[in-house]
């Protein structure tokens, strides 16, 4: 016993170091599973409010640019409305709509790490939940990963763990959208069969397989494509519509039918 205590006292610094190292490695390795540790992320109260304050100051510097962007988006939407033959003042019946949309602002963006997370200023208070989709006016952005009372963190598509169903526009050939961690303006679309005719410049949109995003949300255009190692599927480089380094206003989408879809899928899984 005496010797054990002596040993501990003699190597207390090393033991302390090893303990702390294992704690941090434990967190890190856990983070590679699907959902990360619930408490240690930037949605907590302290970092959330600090980022919010800092953002409150810096947001004034690009108000003009942001205004122009919103105006441009409004123009596009009005274009759609008027050409559908409906006037602007028609009330939309929200009870029938299958998607609800919230708006939010990014208070912390990141795009240089292999696993990027974005923090936004809406949380549980406003009804944001895990696994809601997040888009911008130009295209897809990511999926809500964690929420706290006032903030949420979004798993960006620029995350090596991200995996989103996507397809080639106007066809039903779908594949998975992943990121290899190299360039922040490029993602990869894999698992498109080799018999599919492809052209550089084709548009990639979200597919119908996901219960998170509505179908046909723009993602990007094909920059180049190549057959993968087994020569049976394409590996496509997709250039994103979004400039991931310069984002401000985002929309959070909630599919009201999602619980029903998940329930149905769970039943099938149970039957098997």
């Amino acid at each position: 016993m005496q010797q054990i205590i002596n040993f501990i006292i003699r190597f207390k610094t090393s033991l302390l170091y090893i303990l702390l190292l294992f704690i941090s490695l434990g967190f890190t390795i856990n983070s590679h599973s699907y959902h990360r540790s619930k408490y240690f992320n930037s949605t907590n109260w302290i970092s959330g409010s600090i980022y919010n304050t800092a953002d409150g100051i810096s947001t004034y510097f690009d108000l003009d640019e942001e205004n122009i962007r919103l105006l441009e988006e409004n123009r596009k939407l009005r274009n759609i409305i008027f050409n559908q033959g409906q006037t602007d003042s028609v009330e939309i019946d929200t009870a029938k709509a299958s998607y609800t949309i919230l708006s939010a602002q990014i208070i912390k963006n990141s795009y240089t790490n292999p696993n990027n997370y974005i923090t936004i200023n809406k949380g549980k208070k406003e009804g944001v939940k895990q696994d809601m989709g997040v888009i911008t006016a130009n295209g897809i952005l990511g999926i809500i990963e964690h929420t706290s009372n006032g903030y949420s963190s979004v798993q960006s598509i620029l995350n090596t763990k991200s995996n989103i169903n996507a397809k080639i526009k106007n066809t039903n050939y779908f594949g998975s959208l992943i990121w290899d961690g190299v360039r922040y303006d490029e993602v990869k679309l894999v698992d498109i069969p080799r018999l599919v005719p492809l052209l550089v410049g084709d548009t990639i949109v979200t597919g119908a397989m996901s219960s998170i995003f509505p179908e046909n949300i723009p993602i990007g255009t094909i920059k180049s494509f190549d057959l993968n190692v087994s020569k049976s599927f394409y590996s496509i480089d997709v250039e994103l519509f979004n400039d991931m380094s310069n984002l401000k206003n985002v929309y959070i989408i909630y599919n009201k039918n999602r619980p029903e879809i998940l329930e149905l899928e769970a039943e099938i899984a149970n039957d098997q």
């Binding site: 240690f40 992320n41 696993n115 923090t119």
Partner: peptide
């Protein structure tokens, strides 16, 4: 060592990197 761990961990909290900074700093 404990203070360095805390320093790394604070940075981790802000940058959503879990405990990467903490491991390196400690």
């Amino acid at each position: 060592i404990v203070i360095s761990f805390l320093l790394g961990f604070c940075i981790d909290l802000f940058s959503d990197t879990l405990a990467l900074h903490a491991a390196a700093t400690v």
